[in-house]
């Protein structure tokens, strides 16, 4: 590692309140997991933004690529039967 390094890049996810999903909020540099967690607390939760944090080495994230956006997500478009509004119900049934 470069002698004057700032450490590897980590992605930070914050949970606003218990029970809610973790949402990506940014990234930072750290030399290990413990430091990443402490830095994340200092940088991203100074104003009660959350009650729990995840930190993940950026290099470990697997992402879809923008060029694939069409073929990768397209198959979902023609399957309208996956939505509740596709189905016809008798008029008498008000809620289902």
């Amino acid at each position: 590692m470069n002698k004057d390094s700032q450490g590897a890049l980590w992605e930070v996810f914050v949970q606003k309140k218990p029970g809610q999903p973790y949402v990506h909020c940014g990234n930072l540099h750290a030399f290990d997991a413990e430091m990443a967690l402490q830095n994340a607390r200092d940088v991203y939760t100074r104003r009660n933004e959350g009650t729990a944090l995840w930190v993940v080495p950026s290099a470990s994230i697997v992402a879809s690529s923008p060029e694939d956006i069409g073929p990768f997500f397209e198959p979902a478009n023609d399957k309208v039967f996956r939505h509740p509004t596709f189905y016809k119900l008798p008029k008498e049934i008000k809620h289902m």
């Binding site: 590692m1 002698k3 004057d4 390094s5 700032q6 450490g7 030399f31 290990d32 430091m35």
Partner: peptide, 15 residues
């Protein structure tokens, strides 16, 4: 701050 960064690298390597 250089010694802090160097110490942090060394500590992470050791662990």
């Amino acid at each position: 701050g250089r010694w802090v960064r160097e110490a942090a690298i060394a500590y992470a390597e050791k662990r």
